[in-house]
């Protein structure tokens, strides 16, 4: 994992590609690249957003639920932390879910992003106020139905 700060398009690296960076714009790699996410290797294909790759190869598989989120840059459900590689992100996303400072620290929205190089990413846990209130009661009911114990605490939503 690189310790370099994320780069912006107004601060390009001179002499070769940066190891980790989030560009703003519509660029993408010209051929398929590898996407490493939470210990799995996926393949991104030119012309698709990164969230499309995740929905086709990661979510809804091996016990994971289907992806829920707007895919339109508004809700932040597909927020990723970039560990390695370079992505380009389109500018039409909501700063309510990704402030400039957070983007500069290496986070981006998969639905607005395309890789430029092979990348390694992980999901960013999110708060769910609704489930902080309701989650325990809902899960108690489900556990009671299958004869398990209850009393678990509500937890953060994670796609991992």
């Amino acid at each position: 994992m690189s310790a370099e700060p994320a780069r912006r398009e107004d601060a390009p690296e001179s002499g070769g590609e940066p190891r980790r960076g989030i560009l703003i714009g519509e660029a993408e790699a010209e051929r398929p690249v590898r996407v490493s996410v939470e210990g799995e290797e996926l393949v991104w294909h030119p012309g698709e957003s990164l969230v499309a790759t995740l929905m086709a190869q990661y979510f809804g598989r091996r016990g994971r639920g289907a992806f829920m989120g707007c895919r339109e840059g508004g809700c932040g459900a597909c927020k990723l932390e970039l560990l390695e590689g370079v992505v380009a992100m389109r500018p039409n996303y909501s700063k309510d879910v990704l402030e400039d400072e957070e983007r500069e620290s290496g986070r981006f929205l998969a639905c607005r992003a395309r890789p430029i190089t092979d990348i390694s990413v992980r999901f960013v846990p999110r708060r769910n106020v609704f489930f902080e209130l309701y989650g325990r009661r809902l899960r108690e009911k489900e556990r009671a139905a299958v004869g398990e114990g209850s009393g678990t605490q509500p937890e953060e939503v994670s796609h991992g």
Binding site: G65, M68, G74, A77, S94, N128, L138
Partner: peptide
């Protein structure tokens, strides 16, 4: 779960449905 989606016997939607807002 039935209150929100009456046909959702798989109970898989509520969490993402309630957490995603703008």
């Amino acid at each position: 779960d039935r209150g929100i989606f009456y046909f959702n016997h798989r109970k898989e939607w509520i969490e993402g449905f309630t957490s995603n807002v703008t």
